[in-house]
Simulated scan of single mutants.
Amino acid sequence: MTKVAWNTKELTVGQLAERSGVAVSALHFYEAKGLIKSRRTAGNQRRYTRDSLRRVAFIRLSQRIGIPLKTIKDALSQLPDERTPTREDWARLSAAWRGELDERIEQLLRLRDDLTDCIGCGCLSLESCPVANPHDQLGEEGPGARRLDTRLCVTQSVCVPAS
């Protein structure tokens, strides 16, 4: 790993990628989506302020727990530019997501507990399936599950049956 001097005010895209463990292409994507910012040098090279390291870490953690990029962008827009966010800044942002995360945890626990009976995939073959479809009556409406409550979706591809 290339050592960057502690008093370096700006990082190149390569340095930011190396320090954050995020691919350069991902950093370019984050920048295109407005999640991080850079300035351009006279030679048109990107330069990121050091606070970008914390922002990238926040983005990665938020993505890992399933927070959509739009929500992450909205949260980051509440932080001051070119200043490392404080503990209070992060506490304020994370508090806003606590209810949503608690709901996701509850959904995942329900999914785990109901996994052997039905995973809400639209299989329509298990006798105890709450979205049962005798004689495939819903098949006439097209492919995919038809009786899922989308509010209970953990992700776009994993939904749990309504209780």
Rank of each mutant, 00 (worst) to 15 (best):
A23L: 13
S125W: 05
Q156M: 05
G139M: 01
R146I: 01
L27R: 08
L101R: 11
I59Y: 13
T2G: 07
D149F: 03
Y30D: 07
R47Q: 08
L111P: 04
E10I: 06
N7P: 00
L11Q: 02
R64I: 01
P161L: 12
L108V: 05
A17S: 15
R19N: 11
R104H: 11
H28Y: 14
M1R: 04
G34N: 08
E18H: 02
D114T: 02
F58C: 11
L27C: 06
R92V: 06
A96R: 10
D81N: 11
I119Y: 06
E106Y: 02
L148W: 04
R47L: 12
L61A: 15
A145I: 14
G142K: 07
P161T: 13
K70D: 05
T41S: 13
T116Q: 12
R147Y: 11
S20Q: 05
P130Q: 04
Y48T: 09
G144D: 07
T86E: 02
G120I: 00
T150H: 04
T8N: 14
E18Y: 01
L109C: 06
A5V: 01
L115H: 10
S125G: 15
I67M: 15
L148Q: 11
P130R: 04
G14Q: 04
V4E: 05
G34I: 10
K3R: 08
T49Q: 08
I65A: 00
R112E: 13
A162W: 03
V158L: 11
S125D: 13
L35E: 05
R60P: 02
L61D: 08
S128F: 07
C129Y: 05
C129W: 06
I67L: 14
I59E: 13
S125K: 14
Q107E: 06
L69H: 08
T116V: 10
D74K: 12
G34D: 07
G122W: 01
E31D: 15
Y48W: 08
D51Q: 09
V22H: 09
